[in-house]
């Protein structure tokens, strides 16, 4: 870990401005991912701006019947909120499927969206990684890639976005509210938030330098049956090989998003449109153009079978 300086931000706008003007500065909230990465010198900020005490920790109703979740609402608080459990069950289930109770107590809503990949080659600083060190190459290509991406990947990077919460938020079409260093706010649809790697895998999201997430808004409840099914080798405390978030309406229509297979939560409109026609019909457009490796080719049938399980459970 490199030595760093530290300050507590006084307001969201001040925090954004401070990061923008300080080279090497980063925000820190729960720190459950950032501190681990700093110990390994995968992240080497020279200055940390602590945003945990900015009071962005409320969950409030929005005018159009949705919920506005403060950026630093903890994973535990969000998953256990009665309104979330009642109206956005898929989100609650996705959150509790991840990490452990201790981590969820500390992890925040904004931080979880920014969780970095768990690609083992990203984590080993001896290995080439375009995400960690742009232009150095990708050791995962041709290496051990069982956990890695099958779609949306590129010749520069096959890492996945590893989280669960964002998969449910993608399903719900959440919106991400930010403030930039000049104090202006904007709203980014979650569909546009996580970037595909292309030739720039180190660019992981739509945030500009200094831009701070202040809230995530959930649209008004969608009704239907909410499911989050996470598939993994051990029963808990492991990243998804594949996860399926789904909302199915009584008429069989609905939507589906997949985790563990791509650089971002994976959702395709044309696939949602097929939901009434069963898992095979959904998976064709959902995974069109997939480029799995030998190690992770199993994820293609696993997505289809897990979706079949979810649909069967929903109809039961």
């Amino acid at each position: 870990m490199k030595p760093f300086t530290y300050e507590r931000a006084s307001s969201p706008a001040a925090a954004a401005a401070a990061v923008a003007r300080t080279p090497g500065a980063k925000f820190i909230a729960g720190g459950t991912n950032l501190l681990d990465l700093m110990k390994l010198e995968i992240e080497t900020p020279t200055h940390l701006i602590d945003v945990q005490e900015l009071k962005l920790d409320k969950i409030e109703p929005t005018q159009d019947g949705g919920l506005r979740v403060g950026a630093f609402v903890s994973n535990t608080a969000l998953a256990s909120d009665a309104r979330v459990r009642r109206d956005y069950g898929v989100l609650s289930r996705a959150i509790v499927a991840g990490a452990s109770g201790q981590l969820r107590n500390k992890a925040t809503t904004a931080g979880n969206l920014l969780q970095r990949t768990r690609c083992p080659y990203f984590y080993d600083t001896n290995q080439a990684c375009n995400k960690r060190k742009p232009g150095s190459g990708c050791a995962a290509l041709g290496g051990y890639s069982r956990q890695l991406g099958i779609i949306g990947t590129s010749d520069a990077c096959i890492a996945t976005y590893p989280g669960d919460m964002a998969v449910a938020m993608r399903l719900l079409d959440a919106q991400i509210e930010t403030i930039n260093p000049t104090g202006q706010s904007r709203t980014i649809p979650i569909a546009d938030f996580h970037k595909l790697p292309g030739t720039t895998p180190h660019v992981e999201n739509a945030l500009q330098r200094g831009e701070l997430i202040t809230a995530v808004t959930l649209p008004k409840p969608l009704g239907g049956t909410h499911t989050y099914r996470k598939v993994r080798d051990r029963a808990s405390y492991a990243y998804a090989l594949v996860s399926v978030a789904a909302i199915v309406q009584p008429d069989g229509s609905g939507r589906v998003a997949i985790g563990g297979i791509a650089p971002r939560p994976w959702r395709v409109d044309a696939a949602d449109a097929q939901l009434r026609n069963g898992s095979k019909a959904v998976v064709a457009p959902l995974l069109a153009g997939a480029r799995p490796t030998e190690d992770n080719a199993f994820k293609v049938p696993l997505v289809e079978r897990t979706l079949a399980a979810v649909l069967a459970e929903t109809r039961a």
Partner: peptide, 25 residues
């Protein structure tokens, strides 16, 4: 322990990647 046969090391070298049973198992 997953072997990278090109570079000669165990790739999944931490407890997040080398999974051992947890209570739920």
């Amino acid at each position: 322990l997953a072997v990278d046969k090109r570079f000669g090391f165990f790739v999944n070298h931490d407890l997040a990647q080398y999974e051992v049973p947890v209570h739920a198992d």
